[in-house]
């Protein structure tokens, strides 16, 4: 429920940057995937804030590990009004240290080349930015854990 609400209030731009495509209303399947966290191969951290009496998700970061459990891909979204508040850094810190504890060797992500903010942020966290063969529209970002 919180997850759907969170996705719904994001701007089209934020959803595009996260999913690399247009997402109108998040489908049941997407919400199911995002909430089906097993704390092992699929790990997620959320940041919530109190809005009156209601607790709302304002940011989330997650990784999904590959089958051999060596590497993982991560994704992060922050609610538009919470950009530049530092919560992205906190979420990533938690995500990276958990991945390390689980024995994962690398964390990587695919970022739109035009998403300069994310690329700058990832560099700051020690990710290496690499070109993707035959695809100048995206960059691969990788960090050894």
């Amino acid at each position: 429920m919180h997850e759907r609400e969170f996705l719904n209030q994001l701007s089209g731009e934020s959803r595009y940057l996260r999913f690399h495509k247009w997402v109108n209303a998040p489908s049941d399947k997407l919400v199911h995937f995002l909430t089906d966290v097993d704390y092992d191969k699929h790990m997620a951290f959320v940041c919530t804030a109190l809005d009156g009496d209601a607790e709302r998700v304002v940011g989330e970061a997650r990784y999904v590990a590959d089958l051999n459990g060596k590497n993982c891909e991560f994704g992060i979204i922050i609610a538009d009004p919470w950009h530049k508040t530092g919560i992205a850094g906190l979420l990533m810190e938690a995500l990276i240290s958990t991945a390390r504890e689980r024995g994962l060797a690398t964390m990587e992500g695919v970022v739109l080349t035009s998403n300069a903010t994310m690329i700058r942020f990832a560099r700051g966290l020690g990710f290496e930015v690499q070109p993707v063969a035959n695809d100048p529209t995206t960059r691969r970002i990788v960090k050894k854990l």
Binding site: F19, L30, Y63, D66, E73, V110, N134, T137
Partner: peptide, 13 residues
């Protein structure tokens, strides 16, 4: 389905 990365990003290329 559309081809996507494990975390759910569509592989447009």
């Amino acid at each position: 389905h559309l081809p996507k990365t494990p975390i759910g990003k569509v592989l447009r290329r």
